[in-house]
Design a binder for these strands. Structure first.
Lengths: 217, 217
DNA sequence: AGCAATATTGGACAATCTTCAAATATTCGT
DNA sequence: ACGAATATTTGAAGATTGTCCAATATTGCT
């Protein structure tokens, strides 16, 4: 794992400034895109001078890395909150995670941030690394329920099913996310996802997953 | 629909130069990302001077628009080729489209281009417009088969199912696409997609799609 | 071959970018 | 409240960007 530089800011004021910079940076990325992600726009966004931003984050890359780590940490917390729902069966939990994930995808924050992240991951090893780590956790959460629903699957097969469910849900982002062309169909999409993915988890067999795929090709 | 400027290049040489510029521009976007998408890198990629690129495309935005339109046109052709497979049932065709789409997603070209496009669509109305148009065609193709498989569905319900299948497949791009962390699981993903999506098309009812989603929330 | 239209070169330009360093202001333990 | 550590401002260096222009080379029609 590639380490991000430790978060700067020793005095109370400096620490608060760093907070403002990180928030402004995230806002710029969400509202204006990677193209507008410059020190000047970030500084303007939090009423600061460029030099000050440059002082707290001597290299721009540091800012990106710290920002990304803090942002994904907040998503980790969100993910953990999904898990802590007592008194539900594994199937109900899986259905709930699906609903909550698709709900979150509809926010402007998630819609914009993750599409940007997927693009950045093409070139930046750091971003790619963090994206992989984050979704590994998502797979774990989903996989836990899948394993309970379908006890015949091996751990690797469980992960494959979790990966399928997670990736399929994420696929809604560019199409049914915030202000995307088919955003109004998200309720229907969610209904289909709940039905389809739960059914898959229940009924998929090792035999299915070993499919040679020579029949249709 | 936002019109792209007409393609420049009058003489044979000029036209060929425009070709090289467009190819170089696409290569830069695929290989080096949106960050490196500058006139100078594009010019260097096709052994030209910046002034010449600027002469054929007086504004950078023109280059982007023409490039995007030509690129999506090539994907349109690819899509049409998928359709022209004779002697197959609707179910077999749907399964085939799923396999071919997921195959294409594994290419570096598609993996990188579409992730970049989804990000650019957040800020550029033009890109968003073209992305919407392209996937509308994808939905049409898939929807045609879905309608044949499940004749009880209304046209809008057919589109919802096609949208679900398409978006779910696209979701594999950032995770199982070219050199992505779980690229080695694409065969399993494809097997699940074929089984799961075909089953959905067959069995989904209007009642399912009208799901109120109050039960699990 | 001649000639107007088109293409290419090379450089200039202003605007932007990141990074840095010196000067000034603020904070906080003592 | 003093003083060292930290934060902020200011200004500027150096690089890169898109755009433009005049000079030159090439093309393709008559």
């Amino acid at each position: 794992m590639i380490l991000a530089p430790s978060r700067p800011g020793i005095y109370a004021r400096g620490s608060e400034t760093v907070d403002q910079i990180l928030k402004a940076a995230l806002d710029v990325l969400i509202d204006e895109g990677a193209d507008a992600f410059t020190l000047r726009r970030i500084a303007a966004r939090c009423d600061m001078k460029v030099g000050n931003v440059s002082y707290h984050f001597p290299r721009k890359e540091m800012l990106i890395q710290v920002m990304l780590d803090e942002m994904l940490e907040s998503y980790d917390k969100l993910l953990e909150e999904m898990v802590r729902k007592p008194g539900l069966t594994a199937e109900e939990r899986l259905k709930l995670v699906i609903i909550l994930c698709l709900e979150d995808i509809q926010t402007k924050r998630t819609t914009h941030l993750f599409t940007e992240l997927w693009a950045l991951a093409n070139q930046s090893e750091f971003v790619a690394d963090r994206v992989r780590l984050f979704y590994s956790k998502v797979h774990e959460v989903i996989g836990e329920y899948v394993a309970q629903i379908n006890t015949a699957l091996t751990p690797d097969e469980v992960h494959s099913v979790a990966l399928f469910i997670s990736a399929s849900m994420e696929g809604s982002t560019p199409f049914l996310g915030h202000q995307k062309p088919w955003a109004h169909k998200m309720p229907v999409f969610t209904a289909m996802a709940a039905i389809s993915f739960v059914h898959l988890a229940k009924t998929v067999t090792s035999r299915d997953l070993a499919g040679l795929m020579t029949e249709a090709a």
